[in-house]
Computed example of a mutant assay.
Amino acid sequence: MSKLLVRTISGIILASIAISAVLFLDKNIFKFFIAVLSAVAVWETANLLTKKFEKINPISTAIIGFLASLSILFFNFYLAVLTIFLYGFYEAVKKWDINYLTSIVFSLIYGSFFVSSLGLLVDEDKYLLLILFATVWAGDTFAYFVGKTFGKNKLAPRLSPKKTLEGAFGSILGSLIAGGITAYYFNHLEAIVPTAIASIVMQIGDLFESFLKRQVGVKDSSNLIPGHGGILDRIDALMFASIVFLTFYNFL
C-alpha cells in the first residue's frame, strides 16, 4: 500500500472521528477527550526533548499536562500555570539544571495550553470547530497537491526542505475557500476574519514543530498515526489556528 493511500485512509478516519466527536459528544465529555489529547501532545513533546535532556520523564510530564488541561477546561487558568511551574521546578531542582525547568515548562505549555484551546472553542459554539477543521484540513490538502505540482521555491529549507512558497500560497487559498464556504453554511460569516488570519498563522505552526524536530534530529513526533507520524504532526497547524479563532471570539 502506497504511503499516500495510507495517509489518506488515516486522515479520513481521523477526520470522521473528530467531526463525530464535535457533533455528537456531550460538551464536557468532548472537553475531557481534549485533555487526553493534550496529554498525548505533551508526551510527544517531552519525548522529543529527551533527545537532548535524557532525564525528562515523558510519562509523568504527560500526566501533569492532563491535569493542567483539565484545569484550563473546567476550573481555572492560573491553577494550570501554577501546576506547570511547580512540577517544572520540582524536576529541575532534582537535576539541578535550569534547562530542565525551561524544557518541561515548554512541553506543558505547548502541549496542554495550545491543544486545550479546542475545548475552550467548543464553549463558544461547536460549529466554529467545524469551520476551523475545514480551514486547516483544506489548507493541508491544497499545500500538498499545489506544492507537489507547482512547487519550485523553498519556503524554509532549513526547517522543512519539502515545503515551498507555492505550496504555502495553495494552502492559504484552500483555507480561505473551504473556511469561507463552511462559515457561510453555518451562518458564521464573521468567521471569515479568523479564517483569513489562521490561514497564515497555521503555516507558522507547521514550521514551529518542524523546528522542534530538527533540533532533536527526528522526522516525526512519534509513530502513533500510520502515514502521518504523531499527534503533533497531525495537529501542529490546527493548534496555532485554534488560538487565532479563540482569541477572535474572546475579543468579540
Score class of each variant (00 low, 15 high):
residue 1 M to G: 13
residue 1 M to V: 12
residue 2 S to D: 15
residue 10 S to L: 01
residue 13 I to Y: 05
residue 16 S to L: 13
residue 16 S to R: 11
residue 18 A to P: 03
residue 18 A to Q: 08
residue 19 I to D: 06
residue 20 S to G: 00
residue 22 V to D: 06
residue 22 V to G: 06
residue 24 F to V: 10
residue 25 L to M: 13
residue 30 F to S: 06
residue 33 F to M: 10
residue 33 F to D: 03
residue 33 F to V: 03
residue 36 V to A: 09
residue 39 A to V: 07
residue 40 V to G: 03
residue 41 A to E: 03
residue 42 V to L: 08
residue 45 T to M: 15
residue 45 T to D: 01
residue 49 L to T: 06
residue 50 T to F: 00
residue 53 F to C: 12
residue 57 N to Y: 00
residue 59 I to W: 00
residue 66 F to A: 01
residue 67 L to W: 03
residue 69 S to H: 08
residue 69 S to M: 12
residue 70 L to Q: 11
residue 73 L to E: 01
residue 73 L to D: 01
residue 74 F to W: 07
residue 75 F to N: 14
residue 75 F to S: 14
residue 81 V to M: 11
residue 81 V to Y: 05
residue 86 L to E: 09
residue 89 F to S: 13
residue 98 I to A: 13
residue 101 L to G: 05
residue 109 I to R: 12
residue 110 Y to H: 09
residue 112 S to T: 07
residue 113 F to R: 03
residue 115 V to P: 01
residue 115 V to D: 11
residue 118 L to V: 11
residue 119 G to F: 05
residue 119 G to Y: 08
residue 120 L to D: 02
residue 120 L to A: 04
residue 121 L to F: 11
residue 126 K to V: 07
residue 127 Y to P: 00
residue 128 L to T: 04
residue 128 L to E: 04
residue 130 L to G: 04
residue 135 T to H: 10
residue 137 W to A: 09
residue 137 W to L: 13
residue 138 A to Y: 01
residue 138 A to I: 02
residue 139 G to V: 07
residue 141 T to M: 07
residue 142 F to K: 05
residue 152 K to T: 14
residue 153 N to K: 15
residue 154 K to T: 07
residue 155 L to S: 07
residue 156 A to F: 08
residue 158 R to V: 13
residue 159 L to Y: 02
residue 161 P to Y: 13
residue 165 L to N: 14
residue 166 E to K: 12
residue 169 F to A: 14
residue 169 F to Y: 15
residue 171 S to M: 08
residue 172 I to M: 14
residue 174 G to R: 06
residue 174 G to A: 09
residue 176 L to P: 05
residue 184 Y to S: 14
residue 184 Y to K: 08
residue 185 Y to V: 14
residue 186 F to Q: 10
residue 191 A to T: 07
residue 192 I to V: 15
residue 193 V to C: 08
residue 195 T to Y: 07
residue 195 T to L: 06
residue 196 A to Q: 06
residue 197 I to D: 04
residue 197 I to Q: 08
residue 197 I to E: 11
residue 198 A to H: 02
residue 198 A to I: 02
residue 199 S to I: 02
residue 202 M to S: 14
residue 203 Q to P: 07
residue 205 G to L: 02
residue 206 D to N: 13
residue 209 E to V: 11
residue 213 K to M: 10
residue 214 R to F: 09
residue 215 Q to V: 05
residue 215 Q to Y: 12
residue 215 Q to L: 08
residue 218 V to P: 00
residue 222 S to H: 05
residue 225 I to S: 07
residue 231 I to N: 01
residue 232 L to C: 00
residue 234 R to K: 14
residue 235 I to V: 15
residue 238 L to F: 12
residue 240 F to S: 02
residue 241 A to C: 03
residue 247 T to K: 08
residue 251 F to R: 04
residue 252 L to H: 13
